[in-house]
């Protein structure tokens, strides 16, 4: 029978849990092999970063959704880590094929790459649970009827102190690396992209300005427009 929105959400949550619980919240053997092939093995940094970000995420999730949700926050984070490892492995496999390289030391020791990837994975988990949704009204999540709307995008960027542009850079590769994402979740990530491009990326201090300046100094043929105030 046709699925009601609630039934559809329950199904996608169930699929996410089954899919990610089986892969666990540790690096797979393949992923550990990529780590070992690095000139500098990133394993300890990855684990330390996850420990630190896990505490920040759970605490902020509790603040945003209510103290009774700290456990939910921890559960969301565990699922997010499972997706983070899964997508990372898929990305490295595709990069290995594309570049004929096995040593990803630079990328895997790039803190922003890891933080962005984890943020994107957590955004997918929260969107799957309906906690990060644009349906309840607008950019700031509006006054939705679920307590968790306080974690609507771009909440995760603030929690991880992550530049929107760095999150943006990851989205397309994330979608490409995880073909099992549902239509709704892809749509959600696309809306995040649009929000970033329309507003957030142009905030003061965004790395986008540096990039534009580099392009300009790099002698790009056409004159670069100064960013709108």
């Amino acid at each position: 029978p046709p699925q009601t929105p609630i039934r559809a959400a329950m199904t996608s949550i169930q699929m996410l849990r089954v899919d990610l619980t089986s892969s666990g919240d540790q690096p797979s053997t393949n992923l550990a092999t990529y780590f070992k092939h690095c000139t500098v093995d990133p394993t300890q940094d990855v684990l330390k970063r996850l420990e630190m970000l896990g505490q920040v995420f759970s605490q902020r999730f509790g603040q945003a959704a209510g103290p009774h949700c700290v456990v939910n926050g921890r559960q969301r984070f565990t699922l997010g880590v499972g997706l983070y490892y899964k997508v990372m492995e898929a990305m490295l496999k595709s990069e290995e094929k594309r570049l004929s390289v096995q040593n990803f030391s630079k990328l895997l020791n790039h803190s922003t790459f890891h933080t962005s990837l984890l943020a994107c994975a957590l955004e997918v988990v929260m969107a799957t649970y309906g906690e990060s949704s644009f349906k309840n009204g607008g950019f700031n999540g509006g006054g939705g009827d679920t307590a968790e709307t306080g974690v609507c995008f771009p909440w995760i960027l603030d929690v991880f102190n992550l530049a929107a542009f760095d999150f943006y850079k990851l989205i397309e590769s994330f979608i490409k690396a995880e073909p099992t994402l549902s239509k709704d979740i892809v749509k959600h990530l696309e809306t995040c992209e649009n929000l970033i491009m329309e507003r957030i990326a142009w905030r003061t201090g965004s790395p986008l300005f540096d990039l534009l300046k580099q392009e300009h100094e790099g002698g790009a043929a056409e004159q670069v427009e100064t960013p709108a105030s």
Binding site: F104, H110, E172, S173, K183
Partner: peptide, 21 residues
């Protein structure tokens, strides 16, 4: 099943996007 518009070129992957090529 989705209609996401992929825009990255063949020579643009996650390594280039994070300046690790």
């Amino acid at each position: 099943s989705h209609d996401y518009h992929f825009g990255l070129e063949e020579h643009e992957g996650i390594s280039e996007l994070f300046d690790c090529d």
